[in-house]
Simulated assay, not measured.
Amino acid sequence: MPRLNTTPRLADPDGLLEALLAAHQGLDEAASRRLDARLVLILANHIGDAEVLRAAIALAAKPGPESGL
């Protein structure tokens, strides 16, 4: 049974953040939310495991530093 992996694995997290911010540049709030929603669905499809996705949703819904990221 796969478990949610929260160990940092990104080689260039700052570069990824820059790319995400650049993708949002010039978008109004509604377009920015649509971009985020599409990105989440694309990545969820790539993961493909409902149990892992539910664990990620629960973790993301927690406020504060205990979110693990």
Rank of each mutant, 00 (worst) to 15 (best):
G64M: 11
A50S: 13
A11Q: 13
L21R: 15
I57F: 13
G64N: 12
T7I: 10
A23D: 10
G64A: 08
I47R: 09
P2R: 05
L20Y: 12
A19M: 11
L10I: 03
L4D: 03
I42M: 12
P8C: 03
G68H: 06
A30H: 05
I47T: 12
L4N: 05
M1I: 10
A56K: 01
R9D: 12
P65S: 13
A30F: 06
R3T: 14
A56C: 04
A60R: 14
L16D: 06
L39Y: 07
A31E: 15
R38N: 12
M1P: 06
D14E: 15
A22K: 09
G15F: 07
A11C: 02
L27Q: 03
S32E: 05
A58Q: 14
M1A: 14
A23H: 07
S32M: 01
M1E: 08
A50Q: 11
D14S: 09
V52M: 02
S67D: 14
L17R: 15
S32G: 13
A61V: 03
R38E: 15
D14F: 08
G26F: 02
R33A: 15
P8E: 03
G26A: 08
L35V: 04
V52S: 01
A19N: 08
A55G: 05
D12G: 01
D36R: 15
A22Q: 07
L17E: 11
I57S: 09
R54N: 14
V40E: 05
L41F: 11
Q25C: 06
A31I: 03
R9P: 00
D36I: 08
R54C: 06
A44R: 10
A55D: 14
H24S: 07
A61L: 12
G48K: 00
A31L: 05
E18M: 09
P13G: 03
L20V: 11
R9V: 10
A23Y: 01
I42L: 14
G15K: 07
G48L: 02
I42Y: 11
E66G: 08
A22V: 02
A58V: 09
T7N: 06
P13I: 06
A19T: 07
E29D: 13
L69W: 14
P8R: 04
R34N: 08
D12S: 04
A31P: 03
A58G: 10
R54Q: 15
D36K: 09
T6P: 00
D14Y: 01
T7D: 11
E29G: 00
H24M: 09
D28A: 08
H24W: 01
D28Q: 04
R54P: 00
L53W: 04
